[in-house]
């Protein structure tokens, strides 16, 4: 009771990275709170899934394993998780801020009348004293996220309502095997009692899922472009540099919104978080929503026409100049010097 839940997202038994990252974070928080870490998997063909989850510290693995749960549909998943939460009373529930998590976590929070904080960049345990009532709360989940255009960092708490729920984007937390594996005890969810006929109302007629072919998270070198790159054509220069250096192309949200490149390349609070060896920021001003996703890069080079752009403050090298001019020169001198 009052343990920590992590909702595990998987496709055909392959667990999403974000879920393993949350287990790693969840293990740390559960240990600090002195409670158990419990994973919840809702899907089909889940034989043996508890073994992998145990390595990331899961003490218990709750499983609802039935053909009706794959592919993901909002209503059955909401009904099962809501039912399990009501019966097991976890104090914290964590979700990946993925298409799936962002679709059904709000419904779960609405059904349970408990708060949900989206896209957290840090999770901590701490106390709180209400300034008006003087009520003291111990061991709350601090849900920390940038807000209001990234100009502020807000710490959100849910003092009165349980569970405390948060979503976290892929790559924000680190994924690591637990120092000591969890027990990984598999427990079947009595899901039949949670579902009703109306939960099956939506039918999936067709589904076309491409394998993810852009992997910016795993790249050692990232050439990222912002709105300042100016056009789709100029983005081709970034691809050229990335190819020469053996890296990948990333982007800020502004560049994605402007249609310069694919959403899968978005780095930052509402994209992925990366920690490459080298990050070349081209025409990126450096709003916190973006820097939140790349500030742990080992080295940052900025190319910007504005020498006072905020990105300069976290850059190791700040090149003042136009992307169209600087990138071809970098390519040229790299080729020249690597011969």
């Amino acid at each position: 009771m009052n343990n920590l839940f992590v909702y595990i997202e998987q496709e055909a038994g392959r667990v999403a990275d974000v879920s393993l990252e949350l287990l790693t974070k969840g293990r740390e928080l559960a240990t600090q709170l002195g409670v158990q870490l419990e994973a919840v998997v809702i899907g089909a063909d889940l034989a043996g899934i508890e073994q992998e989850l145990a390595r990331y510290g899961a003490d218990t693995v709750w499983v609802a394993d039935d053909a009706c749960f794959a592919p993901f549909r909002t209503l059955p998943h909401t009904a099962v998780l809501t039912g399990l939460i009501r019966d097991e009373q976890p104090q914290i529930v964590l979700f990946g801020a993925t298409c799936v998590g962002r679709d059904f976590a709000p419904r779960v929070s609405s059904a349970l009348h408990s708060g949900l904080t989206a896209d957290c960049t840090q999770l901590e345990i701490g106390d709180h004293t209400d300034a008006k009532t003087g009520t003291h709360y111990e061991n709350l989940l601090y849900q920390i996220r940038p807000a209001f255009g990234g100009n502020i960092i807000a710490t959100i708490i849910n003092p009165e309502h349980r569970p405390q729920m948060a979503t976290v984007r892929e790559g924000v937390m680190r994924k690591a095997y637990a120092a000591v594996s969890g027990r990984g005890e598999r427990r079947e969810i009595a899901w039949q009692g949670y579902l009703s006929e109306s939960d099956m109302a939506v039918e999936i007629l067709d589904r076309e899922i491409k394998e993810r072919n852009i992997d910016i998270k795993g790249a050692h070198i990232i050439v990222a472009g912002g709105y300042g790159v100016g056009s789709k054509e100029n983005f081709a220069l970034l691809h050229e540099l990335a190819e020469v250096l053996g890296g990948e192309v990333g982007a800020s949200r502004a560049a994605v919104d402007a249609g310069f490149t694919e959403p899968e390349r978005q780095i930052g609070q509402t994209g992925v978080t990366v920690r490459p060896k080298l990050y070349i920021a081209c025409g990126i001003s450096g709003q916190i929503q973006h820097t939140a996703g790349m500030e742990q890069s080992a080295m940052v080079i900025s190319i910007n026409t504005d020498p006072a752009a905020p990105i300069t403050k976290i850059a190791d090298y700040a090149i003042t100049g136009r992307v169209e001019e600087v990138i071809p020169k970098l390519i040229k001198y790299y080729k020249k010097n690597s011969k």
């Binding site: 709180h128 807000a147 849910n158 403050k313 700040a318």
Partner: peptide
Amino acid sequence: SPTKVKRIENVVFQAKEAKCLTA
């Protein structure tokens, strides 16, 4: 509203010394 804002911090970049270059 179950969620409460406990604290708001303004974003302050920790400036490190960037080496400035031209094109």
